[in-house]
């Protein structure tokens, strides 16, 4: 068939958090190259169900790179070989005919496996709960145009705010640090006047929570930013460090 390839999938299967996992290898034939990688997994799952077996569990929802639900460590890269894209934005045309593609869950102490390729990323929510907000109650806002914000700052805050909370940065980091994820949120608020009043409290609370939940330390290897599907920049971490130092100085 034109524009179709066949390949093997070596996939991590693990029935539950308690059980030991193992790799299983499956073969997919004549998959059109404009099929998305997750659609290829759908095809595999249909075949498994037809054989009476359980499908491979993996997380996904929007399938357009915005919800942060999909994960997968594909051929040694979180979200696979493409840069600036999530797993759900990966297409079969990225792979070669006859290739064996290895698919694993995120590996990190803070993200226990739930089933097969699905992990628990609740720790990321807990970090946000520690301080990733402006303390403001519904209703009391002033007019939206009351505080002008420079376009440069607004655009930069927007870039930081683009983090989809997928956890690829953690999976990519040899220390399992969530620093890029935390830095993205801290930066968004550090760049905006709305975030200023609580800036010091925020950065300390979020970092303390990150440590408490078993994420590793940041040693500036930069693997996180290289694998981030949303191109969240390392400069966010520098900004976080400055914010943290200045918060500490006030202690």
């Amino acid at each position: 068939m034109d524009n179709a390839i066949s390949f093997k999938l070596k996939i991590w299967r693990q029935a539950s958090p308690q059980e030991k996992g193992r790799f299983e290898t499956y073969e997919l034939r004549d998959i059109p190259t404009d099929t998305s990688f997750l659609e290829a997994l759908d095809i595999l799952n249909e075949q498994l169900i037809e054989k009476g077996e359980e499908p491979v569990a993996f997380d996904h929802d929007c399938r357009e790179g915005i919800c942060g639900m999909c994960s997968l460590y594909i051929n040694g890269h979180p979200h696979g070989p493409a840069t600036g894209a999530t797993t759900c934005q990966l297409y079969v045309r990225r792979f070669r005919d006859g290739e064996t593609i290895t698919v694993e869950p995120w590996r990190s102490a803070a993200f226990p496996v739930i089933k097969d390729l699905m992990v628990n990323r609740n720790a990321l929510d807990q970090i946000q709960q520690a301080g990733g907000y402006v303390s403001f109650n519904t209703g009391g806002a002033q007019d939206a145009n009351a505080i002008p914000i420079s376009k440069v700052d607004a655009d930069e805050a927007m870039d930081s705010a683009s983090c989809i909370g997928c956890g690829a940065c953690v999976a990519a980091c040899k220390n399992g640090s969530a620093m890029l994820f935390v830095a993205a949120k801290v930066s968004q608020f550090a760049l905006l006047p709305q975030g200023k009043p609580e800036a010091k409290r925020r950065v300390k609370a979020m970092l303390a929570k990150m440590d408490e939940l078993g994420f590793g330390n940041c040693t500036n290897t930069g693997a996180c930013a290289a694998e981030c599907p949303k191109n969240i920049k390392l400069s966010n971490i520098s900004r976080l460090n400055r914010e943290f130092v200045s918060a500490k100085c006030r202690d």
Partner: peptide, 22 residues
């Protein structure tokens, strides 16, 4: 109108013009 006020107060980074307004 309350919604856009509310969202700006939360720190939603809406697009802005060079003059700093939305």
């Amino acid at each position: 109108n309350n919604i856009s006020d509310q969202c700006v107060a939360q720190g939603v980074p809406f697009a802005r013009e060079y003059g700093g307004l939305l």
